[in-house]
């Protein structure tokens, strides 16, 4: 194992770096796109169920199919990382739009009502009251999306761009365990670190949640 690591250090680092980019750029893009979509699902309640259904269908498209398809749709090269980024952004949007909508719906209607009665206008009420109160639910969804993206990136290796996934295909083709194990360990560790980071951020920006579910 140690000889594998020392001989292939550069390859592994390159794969890891690519993996991080391919997984996290879609998280950021997807989150930014999902916020307004999720809000629409709450602002116009009739849109909520169609939204949930469309998101469900999008999420059920196999990642491999999407990776293969996007070059044809977008006119990109089959080996372009852009395909992976777009595909994972689509999944992130599918996952987070629903989460944002559910988060906003989870806000106690009495809280929204009292904000309205105090004289909040719609936009400021959303930014000052509804979004902060919905944060725990939204961030929980963000954790799921981030971890799912990190593990999905490797499927891209089947079309030649997959970060750590390339270690899997190489090991598989050469019948060689080391790269596969290193790839899995790094991928899981990356997911764990990303997940933990979001948890820490959540603790920091939603201090009030520590007291909920417990009466004074």
């Amino acid at each position: 194992m140690s000889s594998y690591l020392s001989n292939n250090w550069d390859t592994i680092l390159t794969a890891l770096r690519q993996h991080i980019w391919l997984a996290l750029v879609p998280v950021v893009l997807g989150f930014v796109i999902a916020l307004p979509i999720g809000y629409l699902g709450v602002r116009f309640p009739r849109l909520y169920h169609p939204l949930v259904n469309v998101c469900g269908v999008l999420y059920s498209i196999p990642s491999l199919a999407l990776f293969v398809f996007l070059p044809v749709l977008l006119g990109t090269k089959i080996l372009s990382p852009l395909n992976i980024v777009v595909a994972l952004t689509i999944y992130t949007v599918a996952l987070l739009s629903r989460t944002v909508a559910d988060g906003l719906r989870s806000v106690d209607p009495l809280v929204v009502e009292s904000a309205t009665a105090m004289g909040y206008r719609r936009l400021r009420r959303l930014v000052d009251v509804q979004l902060p109160v919905a944060l725990p639910v939204i961030l929980a969804g963000l954790r799921v999306a981030t971890v799912a993206n990190i593990s999905l990136v490797s499927v891209g290796a089947l079309i030649g761009v997959g970060g750590l996934g390339q270690l899997f295909t190489r090991g598989f083709q050469l019948f060689y365990l080391e790269p596969i194990i290193v790839g899995i360990v790094l991928s899981v560790a990356l997911a764990g670190i990303a997940d933990l980071t979001i948890v820490l951020i959540q603790r920091w920006i939603t201090p009030w949640t520590r007291f909920q579910g417990r009466t004074a």
């Binding site: 790839g183 899995i184 764990g192």
Partner: peptide, 11 residues
Amino acid sequence: RSLPTLGLLML
């Protein structure tokens, strides 16, 4: 969720 299925499969 964090376990990459492809990696696990190939392993």
